[in-house]
Design a protein around this nucleic acid. Sequence first.
DNA 1: AACCCGCCCAACT
DNA 2: AGTTGGGCGGGTT
Length: 176
Amino acid sequence: MINDKRYRVLITYSLFPTSIGWCGVLTTQRGLLRLYAGYAERNQLLNHIAGAVDSHKKKVPATGIVIDKIKRYCSGKHVSFEGCKMDWSSLSPFQQKVLKAALKIPYGSVETYGNLARTIGCPRGARAVGNALAKNPFPLVIPCHRIIRGDGKPGGFSAGGGVMLKNKLLQMEQLS
DNA sequence: AACCCGCCCAACT
DNA sequence: AGTTGGGCGGGTT
């Protein structure tokens, strides 16, 4: 539950439908706080948001740079999320290291959990990397779907649509 | 000090 | 191709 004092200031949220399902965005003045993607039902998403933050939040229209990028990405466009301001304050140093390394994997390419572990100087930390990615608060923007297992299988995906969505995103990027 | 994991690798069948 | 078993490191309770 994100109900820390430091978040009490203001959280805004928006919901919007896309080709990969309902998506949602939570923001603070520090930037993007959390992103949701791939929900079949709007209410599902709403419940997840309700479970993640307390009542100090305000609904705002689904507009803005980040949301526009997400919409374009979901329609199959080659979108760079570079420059998106994100609120990292609730993440551990290790999670930040993993997510920032994942951020560098370009559109249309993939990397393995093991290799990502090596690039952050943690050569036997593949599983720890998976653990950190499982809690990625910014799916799509931080492309955790581009990280797959060493044997070529997709591995897991904890955002809205599960592994099905992971495969769909990878397929979308190959075709662009 | 136990668990739990979006893993990996070698060694099998 | 699938399965098994040991090892792994970070996070959570």
